[in-house]
Amino acid sequence: MAERLAGKVALVTGGASGIGRAAVLRFAREGAKVMIADRNVTALKETLAEALAITPDAASVQADVSKTPQVQAMVDAAVARFHRLDVLVNAAGVLVLAPPLAEIDERDWDLMMNTNLRGLFLCCKAAIPAMIKGGGGSIINISSMAGLAAYARSLPYAVSKAGVIHLTLGAASQYTSKGVRVNCIAPGTVDTPQARGSSQSAKGLEEIAAAHPMGRVGSPDDIANAILYLASDESAYVSGSTVIVDGGGRTLPPKI
């Protein structure tokens, strides 16, 4: 069976854990060369080892996407190692729980905006020239259903993720004609370390799963499947789209 990303070079931010990690491993199995970027060096080492068990063409770089020099160094490292850049997956994100708006700590707002939105902007800004140099590419931004609907547990997170959706539209309008496709995925609740951690209790995810139309929350692999589609040439005619992967959670009728 043909590999769906054969020969492509991919950079995955937030690639050490959760959705990013699932994308890294899926990409490796589909023939891609993968640069894994994360600020968590411990998890980075583990995920790199897993990727190297699949392909020799995997490497890692420590990067905090909210820091401009680190972002440029990250893109440079990918190009230095693999000589081009075809795919960028922006999976790096932080979720800090927040009280209602009037009590939100300004510092928390900055933390989430700096990583989730400003960091994603910086990654696109650094990657697009490298992609254009190679004749084009595909960017996949990971937003969230929290960016489409009200999310009371963290307004800054929701706003940053809504910004990601709109950044996707704008970037697509500017770079599709230059061969760079830009799309976005809005996952519902997914069983990641982040979701487990911020559910504040082991029961938290179980309760969400019980109320979900599919009786479960998403797995990181569910999201990686959509990322693979958008990264591959199968989606050659897809740009500017926001793709929901929430198991139908949004369509569950309100209980009134």
Partner: peptide
Amino acid sequence: DYGFRQIALWSPDDLVEQ
């Protein structure tokens, strides 16, 4: 808050400054 914990672990300088 696990999200906040990750920042303390992996971007402590942000907290030092803030």
